[in-house]
Computed example of a mutant assay.
Amino acid sequence: MMGLWVRFPPVAPRRSKRCHACSGVFLLRSSEMGKTATRRTWRGGKRSERFLHFAKVCFIIIPKETWQDCSTAAVLNNCEKEHAMTTNEKKQLMATACKVRMGVIEGTHAAKAGHPGGSLSAADLFTYLYCKELNVDPSNPKWEDRDRFVLSKGHTAPGLYAALAQRGFFPESDLLTLRHIGSHLQGHPNMNETPGVDMSTGSLGQGVSAAAGMALAAKYQGKSCRVYTLLGDGEIQEGQVWEAFMFAHHYKLDNFCAIIDNNGLQIDGRVADVMSPYPIAEKLRAFGFRVAEIDGHDFDQLEAAFTLARGTKGCPFAIVMKTTKGKGVSYMEDQAGWHGKAPNDEEYAQAMAELKAQLAEVEGM
């Protein structure tokens, strides 16, 4: 089971004059809104209690030395019920994710080019962002106060386009024009041509840098919008990525969320063999991020991670998603060869048959 853990700073009780600082760790637990969490400590042989009140959610403190042992399941089982997705919500997300994957296959097959592998590994993330997390308006893509999403690993544009189509930014039929001359859906995102695209990307490392700049600009302008960016685990081999992370920490960009698609593969093979980025989470923590490690194909874990991201103050947040490259198409799964290759007619037919079967199974739940 992947671990999901996040350290939070102590929070002052309501109506208290000062915070009793401690080095504990707050773990989301089930409780009624506005209740008080208690920590008992021993000082000078006497027991003392510290009360920590939270306006929206209640946390319980666990020992610092054991916080990394907390599992995702423990966090999810203790999430407040009002934050948990309903069965119907999850079913809708799973169905939409299947359609996003179908859009990836249809687009790359029609283009006879593109990057299906990483698009498929991030399909659940794209779905969650555009169907639940992002504050955006398809009827007004340039709305000034919208949340921003920057696809730093820009080559997985087929997945982004499929999600944008599902959200209503443009017709699904446009996906068949991927990479065609005159199409607004080119091989890498173009903010000047494609509705819903917030940054033109493709050169690895530059997207996350632009996203960090957007987050700082929002802070300066007093805006409440949030900025999200998705990076590949091969992309984080770029030094510019870590400069952007250092920037985000320096300016305390708590409106900035970096998501790492850790599918373990890049165009030349295993990331661990080409230029290992591991341990990813520990490096992010060293750069001042709070970090959640999750299964990127589990909508409950995505929900929990983004809830924690929104509640983090004073520093940036990162989500490291363990995923499978080519997820959903049997012959593409965990195969580096499908990083940047389009399916032929026979492969297209097999992929679509598999995805349609998965969609039918979800809709029958």
Results as ranks from 00 to 15, higher is better:
10 P>G: 04
13 P>G: 08
16 S>Q: 13
21 A>F: 13
21 A>Q: 15
23 S>V: 13
24 G>M: 03
26 F>M: 06
28 L>I: 07
28 L>Y: 02
28 L>V: 00
28 L>S: 12
30 S>H: 08
32 E>S: 11
32 E>Q: 09
32 E>A: 03
33 M>E: 15
35 K>E: 13
37 A>I: 00
38 T>I: 14
39 R>L: 06
40 R>P: 07
45 G>H: 06
47 R>Y: 03
47 R>E: 11
51 F>W: 14
57 V>S: 07
59 F>Q: 01
59 F>R: 00
62 I>Y: 00
65 E>A: 03
69 D>Y: 04
70 C>T: 14
72 T>W: 05
73 A>R: 15
74 A>I: 00
84 A>E: 15
86 T>D: 01
91 K>M: 14
92 Q>V: 02
92 Q>D: 14
93 L>D: 09
97 A>C: 14
97 A>K: 10
98 C>D: 06
98 C>S: 10
100 V>M: 06
100 V>E: 04
103 G>D: 03
103 G>Y: 09
105 I>N: 07
114 G>P: 09
118 G>D: 08
119 S>H: 04
119 S>I: 04
123 A>C: 02
127 T>V: 09
129 L>Q: 12
130 Y>R: 12
132 K>Q: 13
132 K>G: 04
132 K>D: 06
133 E>V: 13
134 L>F: 13
138 P>L: 15
142 K>M: 04
143 W>T: 15
146 R>C: 05
147 D>A: 15
149 F>V: 04
159 G>Q: 01
163 A>K: 11
168 G>C: 07
170 F>R: 14
172 E>I: 12
174 D>P: 03
175 L>T: 02
176 L>C: 02
182 G>W: 06
182 G>S: 03
187 G>N: 00
188 H>C: 03
191 M>A: 15
192 N>P: 04
205 G>V: 09
206 Q>P: 10
206 Q>Y: 11
206 Q>D: 03
208 V>C: 14
208 V>K: 14
215 A>H: 08
220 Y>N: 06
228 Y>T: 00
230 L>V: 08
237 Q>R: 12
238 E>Q: 02
239 G>Q: 14
244 A>C: 02
248 A>F: 10
251 Y>F: 15
252 K>F: 06
256 F>D: 02
260 I>H: 08
260 I>C: 04
263 N>K: 01
267 I>V: 15
268 D>I: 02
273 D>T: 11
273 D>R: 12
274 V>P: 12
277 P>A: 05
277 P>R: 07
282 E>G: 03
282 E>H: 12
282 E>L: 13
283 K>D: 05
285 R>D: 06
285 R>V: 04
288 G>D: 04
289 F>P: 01
290 R>M: 06
293 E>F: 02
294 I>L: 12
301 Q>M: 09
304 A>W: 05
311 G>V: 00
315 C>F: 08
320 V>W: 02
321 M>W: 00
322 K>P: 01
323 T>R: 03
326 G>D: 10
326 G>K: 10
333 E>T: 11
334 D>G: 07
334 D>I: 04
335 Q>K: 15
338 W>L: 01
338 W>P: 02
349 A>R: 08
350 Q>T: 14
354 E>N: 14
356 K>Y: 06
358 Q>D: 10
361 E>F: 14
365 M>L: 08
